[in-house]
Amino acid sequence: MIKLDRPQKPAYLTHAKVTELTAKFKADGSSVWRKPEITDPLIKASHKKCAYCECKLQEKDSYMEVEHFRHKDKYNDDVVKWENLVPSCKRCNGKKGTHDVVIEPIVEPFNMDPSDHLYLQMVYFRDHDDVGKATIETLDLNNYKRMVLPRFYITGQIERNIFAIEQALEAYTNTPSVRRKNGLIRILTDTLLECQPNSEFAATAATFLHLNPSYATLCAAMKAGNLWDEELEKLHQLSEAIRLV
């Protein structure tokens, strides 16, 4: 889970339209939120990922669910209130169910920074406070098959990449060449790209990378050898910002 920036409310959601859609939902329970004017900016804001677990969502709104942070049955006046809508995968939406976030708050990544409430220990979510604990348990974020195993895969890939970067740096140091330099930078760039906000399970990848002492050693060596450039620095800083520690 990473911090997200909620976009401006769509022009479509005028006061009159919100009133109309809310009345229709109350009358017949229609899925009045399933409009491209609503779903498109939501999925774009979450980098086409579930706002909670960071799994990739399909671009078509039929493959994502609009999750009502305050549940639509109890808080039906908020059914199309822009600040109440969260892009979610079917699993997380189902896990959250009718959980009442007013009574027992959980992390809403548009309004709250997940790192204030959650941290990662290896590939498992841990809590800093009661909000973090409720988030983990409500969304079942440590479900082994659906959540933990994919995070194992990501961290394994990062570990293999770090080893490859170490080998590439050693080869370049022993016998410098443009080809070896470009290959080294490419591997590191590809690794950092896996840790960007638009990547699947980015918080896991970024946290694992930045907590790995070998990565810090590699960064220092590349800076000392004038191999570190502006693009690497930008990717480094963006990934550092979404760590869960």
Rank of each mutant, 00 (worst) to 15 (best):
E108I: 06
P114N: 01
N174A: 05
K17E: 15
P87L: 03
W228V: 09
K96F: 03
E194L: 10
L188W: 05
K56V: 12
D73T: 12
E200M: 05
M122S: 14
C219A: 15
H68S: 04
L193E: 12
W33Y: 08
K44V: 04
L169T: 06
E231D: 03
R243C: 12
K48L: 12
P176W: 03
V101Y: 01
F125P: 06
V18H: 06
M147A: 15
V66K: 07
K145V: 15
K81S: 14
V123E: 15
Q167P: 01
D100W: 07
I165W: 00
Y119G: 10
T138P: 10
W228E: 06
T98K: 13
P7K: 07
A23E: 10
I154Q: 12
K9T: 09
T207I: 00
D5C: 13
K81H: 14
C195L: 05
Y153V: 15
A11I: 08
R186E: 11
R186K: 14
V18W: 01
H236P: 04
I103C: 08
F201P: 01
E83K: 11
K133R: 14
D113I: 06
T14L: 08
K133E: 12
K74S: 12
N198V: 03
K26C: 04
I154K: 12
Y119E: 07
E194I: 01
C50T: 08
S115H: 10
E230H: 05
Y215N: 14
L42C: 06
L232V: 01
Q157H: 11
L218A: 11
L149D: 11
E233V: 07
A11D: 13
H47M: 05
Q121K: 11
A220E: 14
Y124M: 09
A11W: 05
Y153I: 15
A205V: 01
P114D: 04
T217F: 13
F110A: 02
K234H: 11
T19E: 13
A216F: 11
R6P: 03
L120C: 02
Y172Q: 00
A27C: 00
V86N: 06
T39I: 05
H47I: 06
S214V: 10
A202V: 01
R160T: 09
R243E: 09
E83Y: 07
A221N: 15
Q121G: 02
P36L: 11
E20N: 04
S115Y: 02
S239I: 02
E108P: 02
D116G: 01
L235R: 07
H99E: 10
P87Y: 04
G132T: 02
V123Y: 08
T173F: 00
L238H: 06
F163V: 14
P41Y: 04
A220Y: 09
N142V: 12
C195N: 07
K145G: 13
L209N: 08
P114M: 02
Y63Q: 13
L238S: 12
T189V: 13
A206T: 02
D78W: 15
L21M: 10
D113A: 07
L244S: 02
I185A: 12
S88H: 08
V66C: 07
K56N: 12
P41E: 05
N142L: 14
H47S: 08
C53S: 10
M1E: 05
A16G: 04
K49G: 09
R186L: 15
G225D: 14
